Amino acid sequence: MSITAPDADLTIGWDTTVDDAPVALSARQDLIAVSGADGTVWLLDAATGTSVDTFELPGGALLTALSPDARHAAATGPTGYALWRREDRRITVHETGAWSSTATWADNERVAIAFGRRAHVLAPDGKKLWATEPATSTVTDLAWLRQGRRLAVAAYGAVRCHERHTLKPVMTYPYIGSHLALAVAPTGRWICSGNQDASIHIWRTRDAGELTMSGYPEKVSRLAFDDTGLWLAADGAPDVTVWDFSGKGPAGTAPRSLRCHETITSLAWRPGGSGHLASGGHDGTVALWRATAGRPESRLSPVRTLDSDAAVAALAWAGPHLLIAAHRDGRVRAHRLPSRTAL
């Protein structure tokens, strides 16, 4: 790994190069985790980009999730998962042979990990607290609701919700198709899945009322709610679509369209409910948007673009003032935004 000094441009905080192709980012508190395709995970200081630690996940990495207090990390991959503890840099690797697509922390004491057709909920030391019954196919995404009291599990045919220590789901939201991404509104009011059949399916959690938004030209594999739970960003087209979930939700409305990339590779809302969105593309461009401006059916242009020679692999905000971009050539760059209202 090599580090260069901050760029003369005040929007650049630092540049770091890691020795692998990044596939995912996680940012919490003062720490950033960068997952490499070959299985190395780099833990970086958010302020400087310097290395705090590294660890290996045999078989390759798909995602790394930091706990809210940044004291633990869970890395997942095609052949298992690994847990890292910051206090003593202890690493616990579980080579299970089960496809582990994702991990998500309920709080500092519980992490849910996709484990083949099940979801396992673990303590930070790896102790299994409980598990769901097998789904009909491999679990593709997970999300917590009700402040970590309920776990949503996406697999072919349905999103199933489990309470603590419940093998069987307490609520099932059916939809025949392959779910690629899951997004839950911070309010807990909505569950949304992005699907292989080029659609977004939405359930209202209180009564299971549902809506399908179809007609996307490509599969929808990225969904993200902002902090208010009123805006949902999605891929599935050259445009990023942004749906308004205020009032009764998006039924009968049209989204705002954000055109910059031919192929979208990442989406990340700025923390704090400012309506600012960052998107990354296969062309190496990072675009910054006032994504909630205009009216439904508006086509918005980026406020600014940040260009690189290599495809954007992942984006993450380390607080409201620092946007982290990882590129396929190994470069990880921090962009500083000094004001909550500036882009």
Rank of each mutant, 00 (worst) to 15 (best):
S214R: 11
S298D: 09
D20L: 07
T64A: 11
S193Y: 03
G273M: 02
P255R: 09
I264K: 01
A8F: 08
A287G: 01
L306I: 15
R336F: 13
R204A: 06
T102Y: 00
H327T: 14
V240D: 07
G148F: 04
T79G: 03
G330Y: 15
P271N: 08
A233L: 09
M213V: 07
L211K: 06
G272Q: 04
A268Y: 00
F55G: 01
L230I: 01
R117A: 05
S2Y: 06
L180M: 04
G39P: 15
G215L: 05
G188F: 03
A5R: 15
A47H: 13
I324L: 08
H321F: 09
P174L: 03
T136V: 14
A181M: 09
A5E: 15
D125C: 14
G13F: 05
G319W: 10
G116N: 02
R295P: 01
D197V: 12
Q147M: 05
E262Y: 00
L277S: 00
A46E: 07
D38A: 12
T11M: 09
T54W: 12
D7I: 11
P134N: 09
A291D: 02
T64Q: 07
L167K: 14
R189Q: 15
T140P: 06
H94Y: 10
R333F: 13
N195C: 13
L300W: 01
D197G: 06
A143R: 09
D226L: 02
I200G: 01
V18H: 01
V312Q: 02
L63C: 08
Y156D: 13
A27I: 03
H120K: 02
G280W: 00
D235A: 08
L122T: 09
V111W: 11
G281S: 10
R336M: 11
K128T: 15
V111D: 05
Y175V: 11
A158Q: 13
G126Y: 10
G194F: 07
L145V: 10
R189K: 15
R117C: 04
P338I: 11
I12K: 04
L306K: 08
A123S: 15
D244L: 09
T285G: 02
F115W: 14
W317G: 03
S137T: 12
T104H: 02
R110F: 00
L180D: 04
L323Y: 08
Q147K: 10
A224C: 13
W190G: 08
A73E: 00
P58S: 05
P6F: 07
W190D: 12
A313R: 10
E218N: 14
A268P: 04
